[in-house]
Each structure stands twice: as structure tokens, then as C-alpha cells.
Simulated assay, not measured.
Amino acid sequence: MTQNALYLGREWNVDHDRRVEVKDAELRYTVIGEGEPVVCIHGTSIADSLITPLRFYPPLMENYQLISYYRAGYNGSTLKTGELSIEGGAEHVKQLLDHLGIEKAHIMAFSFGGVIAFQFLLSYPERAHSAILLEPYLPREEPDAVQANIDAYMGAMELYNAGDKLGAAQRYMESVCGPSFLSAVEMTGPLDVWDRVEECVDTTFTVDFPAISQWGFKMSEADALVGGKPSMPVLAMMGLDSESAMPGFRATQRFLMGWLPQAERCGIPNATHGMQSMNPVAVGEAALGFLRRNPMTEAAAVPVPEPVTAGAL
């Protein structure tokens, strides 16, 4: 393992070799490592864009039990209905924990997966010890962010309706994360990452996008919509270049820091919205530091190691 290069040999895949039946779906999942459990929830389109890049920071997997699953409709996980709400996605996380006999876990989630994680914190706060949120894609409200999101969606939908499914997914990712994100995915995902993406595009466009548009949460109405704020430790990560690629991420970061007084913030250099693909070492380093500062028991607390890079701010 090198400190500066992303090198793990030829294939950087993580085999999700287990299955579990949940409500209206069957999920493929895997469990890596030992220690306190950390559930990883991926975003749209690229189901391998969280657990796979994290392999480039081995200390995380050496000290924690990472539970990664493919959301319903992705990479062999099936969905028996034509839709799945955000609340339903959060229920799947709960049912996976029930299946594994885990009463409480840390949650780490990215983008659309961060929305599911956020709903999980609202619906099942007793099951989450802490949460690491990598730019959860909460609904935009500022005019420039709303328009940018509409433009990204419409540009991708044009290609999707024309039958270019992979092009649609990549167009949307490029609009949200910037063009350098695609190269990062190419080098931090499995060799067949784009084949996997192409097979799952229907889920992205016909299940995920409708779910987020129908979700009832609004940042500006959070106090009225939520009876009790989540009180567990929360780390809000943000790519330092995310806002330059697409507006809206800064407003979400400000909301999390303002609404959750216990929240901590973390900036990931040289990264936009796809931070864990673009700078996985920094993301892993920051996640490990946060988890070690927030153990499930005081006896489990261990010192945070010296960073191997100047990754996280």
C-alpha cells in the first residue's frame, strides 16, 4: 500500500457476496473487517463509489466492521415494485441491521445515500450511534441551486429518453461533480464500473429521482417538520471544490451546521461532490478520526493516529 498513489493491484472490486430479504426487495451486501459496525450507503448511479474507494485507506477497514450493501435496483439487488420512497430506503437499512443482529451502528453515506441516511436518523435515531454525511443531496431551495439541478436533470433526461443510458448517467454526474469526476471513477472503481452503471440507470431515473422529488423534507421547514432533532454525533463532509462545480452544496453544509449544534465539519481538498472517488485517502482519514472520537463505549476509545497525508482539513 502506497501513501500517495492509488494502487491495489489490478482489480479494485469489493464482492457483495451475501443476500438478505427486506420489504419489497432483496439486497446484496458484504461485511468487511471487525470492530464497531459502520453501515455504508451509496448514492445514485455508481453503487461502488463508496466502499470501493475506501479500500485505499486500510486503517479504516482494519479497525471497524464496514457493512456495505447495494441499494434496491443496483448491482443485482432487486426491487419488486416500481418505486421506493426515501422512507422505504431508510427502512431497508433498519431491516439489514435487524438481519445482522446489530442494535446500533455508525452510518456513513454519500449524496442520495446521504438523504436515506438523514431520514434514517429521523425515523430510527435509536439505531444510529453517529453519522458521517458526505454531502447529502437534500432538496435545493436557493434559486441558482434549484435551476442548476433542473438543468442537470433535464440534460441527462434528454439522453435517457433517446436511449443513451450510460451517456445520461455520465452527463448528470459531470453536471453535478464536474468533468474530472469521471476520470476519478474510472480509477477508483471496478474495471467494469461503467457496465455496472449502465445496467442500473433505470433505477436512478425511475426510482431515485422520483423518490427525492416526492420526499417531504425541506431545510427551511426543518423545525416544523421534525419533532425532535437527531442528537447523535454528526460529521458533515464537503468537497472544497463542490460549490464551484454546482451550487447548492454550501447551503446544505450551512444547514447541517446550523440545525445540528453537535455537528462537526470537514473539508476534503482536491474534490467536488464525488469526494470519496476523487480523494479517498482524505475521506477515509477523516472518517477514522471522527469514529475514534465517538466510540460506542468509553472503553473503546483509542487515540487518533497521525495522518498519512495532509488530506482532511
Rank of each mutant, 00 (worst) to 15 (best):
T2P: 04
R10T: 05
E11N: 09
D15T: 13
D17P: 08
R18C: 14
A25P: 05
A25V: 07
T30G: 13
I32G: 01
V39T: 10
C40F: 08
T44W: 02
A47L: 03
L50A: 03
I51K: 00
I51G: 01
F56W: 05
Q65V: 02
L66H: 02
S68V: 08
R71L: 08
A72G: 06
A72M: 09
Y74M: 03
Y74P: 00
N75D: 14
G82D: 13
G82E: 10
E83C: 08
S85K: 05
G89M: 10
A90P: 05
A90E: 07
Q95L: 10
Q95E: 15
I102L: 14
E103Q: 12
E103D: 11
A105T: 15
S111G: 08
G114L: 03
G114H: 05
Q119A: 10
F120T: 09
S123D: 15
Y124A: 14
E126L: 00
S130D: 07
S130W: 06
A131N: 10
P139F: 08
E142A: 15
E142N: 14
A145Y: 04
V146Y: 10
V146M: 10
Q147E: 02
A148K: 10
A148R: 09
Y153R: 15
G155W: 09
A156R: 02
L159G: 09
N161G: 15
A162M: 15
G163F: 15
D164K: 15
Q170W: 05
R171L: 06
Y172P: 00
Y172V: 01
M173I: 09
V176E: 02
M187D: 11
G189W: 04
D192N: 09
V193H: 07
V193E: 06
W194E: 10
D195V: 01
C200T: 05
V201F: 06
D202K: 07
T204C: 14
F205V: 11
V207Q: 08
P210K: 09
P210I: 14
A211L: 12
F217C: 13
K218Y: 03
L225S: 15
L225M: 15
L225C: 13
G227L: 13
G228E: 14
P230C: 11
S231V: 08
M232A: 12
E243R: 14
S244Q: 15
F249A: 09
Q253Y: 11
W259S: 04
P261S: 13
A263E: 10
R265S: 07
R265Q: 03
H273M: 02
M278P: 11
N279D: 12
V281M: 02
A282Q: 08
V283K: 01
P303E: 03
P305I: 02
A310N: 14
